[in-house]
Design a protein around this nucleic acid. Sequence first.
DNA 1: GTTTTTCTGACAATTCACTGACAATACGCT
DNA 2: AGCGTATTGTCAGTGAATTGTCAGAAAAAC
Lengths: 221, 221
Amino acid sequence: MRALIIEDDEKIGASISTALELAGFLTVLEKDGEEGWFLGSSEPFDVIILDLGLPTLDGLTILKRWRKENCITPVLILTARGNWDERVEGIDSGADDYLVKPYRSEELVARVRSLVRRSTGHAAPNIEVGDIVLDTRQMRVSRDGQPIPLTPQEYRLVSYLMHNNNRVVDQMELTEHLYSQDFERDSNSIEVLVGRTRRKLGKNSIKTRRGFGYIMEDENE
Amino acid sequence: MRALIIEDDEKIGASISTALELAGFLTVLEKDGEEGWFLGSSEPFDVIILDLGLPTLDGLTILKRWRKENCITPVLILTARGNWDERVEGIDSGADDYLVKPYRSEELVARVRSLVRRSTGHAAPNIEVGDIVLDTRQMRVSRDGQPIPLTPQEYRLVSYLMHNNNRVVDQMELTEHLYSQDFERDSNSIEVLVGRTRRKLGKNSIKTRRGFGYIMEDENE
DNA sequence: GTTTTTCTGACAATTCACTGACAATACGCT
DNA sequence: AGCGTATTGTCAGTGAATTGTCAGAAAAAC
């Protein structure tokens, strides 16, 4: 999962970034509003953390622009304490959730996880596909109750596929959401990653739709 | 479905091309305006993506020429941000939709799909013919709710026939829209493809009009 | 019944995905 | 900081699914 963080305060930005990376996200941190808007408009993110009160371009303006462009990526806005107006206006402008500074970073991570889940149609923090369970809070994957140790990259793969369960995901999309910068196209790293993950989860966990992509789906399909 | 992309920027062009190919399109990428105009006039495309601001020949000029020639292929124009004039003029010149840079490639693909659907008279993203349903977003075909796995080429065939439902499509037309470069005429690959697809969809899904071509049609006709 | 058109099964070529071995890199530990 | 281990990317070779070709069979038209 890729998260875009737009925050001008150096320290706060870095702390959000590390907190989310520990939670398994890939992050892009941007201080400038204009540049941030551009990133959100041109690259696919799974969630965006947006500070209101940016220098060059105001957060609410960015948000409104995105929404006008049919961008439906979930957005969490950060507001200063007491600014009720901002908060209300943020929701009106299309924010999906808001968080008041100061906050504990666990709180932020929890909110972000929840946003990502809800945006992919999952209410509960545990996502089940077939006999595989993804525990988004503990970042663990288990099969029939047996925990399966995965490497960080493998976890990201499974997490992305399970959030988007019953949907074929092509290699391009996986590359975009599993690697920070865009990536040499001529390598087969995704195939290798899928192969390794499959060996741990079981042959039929991740299915190949030749010519289309990969899918994790419930049995009855 | 065949898409013509006229875009001088090497990288942008390539990214549009791969995005559309992953979405099941065959693409032709052309950097030169003059050459692009010629291609659009001489070969049958299902949709054209046209960048305004080309070096040799301006996009709007190309578009106007096509329309004067009674070419009705749907055209999506790409404009730089803020150029309202261009956009308005584009619509006036016969563009069917426009997209402002920067954009996410999912958005582009969605617009292109929508254009192709509308140009063949389909409002919804799911097209139903008889008991067969084509899900254009997920690129899946199902019958009575049961998904039917198809190979990429088979999918292209069904997609084309279902977009053009209740209309007889001859082999020449199918060849032109299902293969990138012009193809040896003496092979019977279309017949074989139809046969294989029929085996998966059911005997009566694709009907043969001997001497004319193939058709997928609703039962009551 | 003959001719034309389309269908079908078998084979071949190609493309695409998987695998195992190796190399590079990142990471944790003392 | 330096070493050892785990993780990840690369590459070449293997295997399998897809697609095209061809020849003969079936079906339709006359």
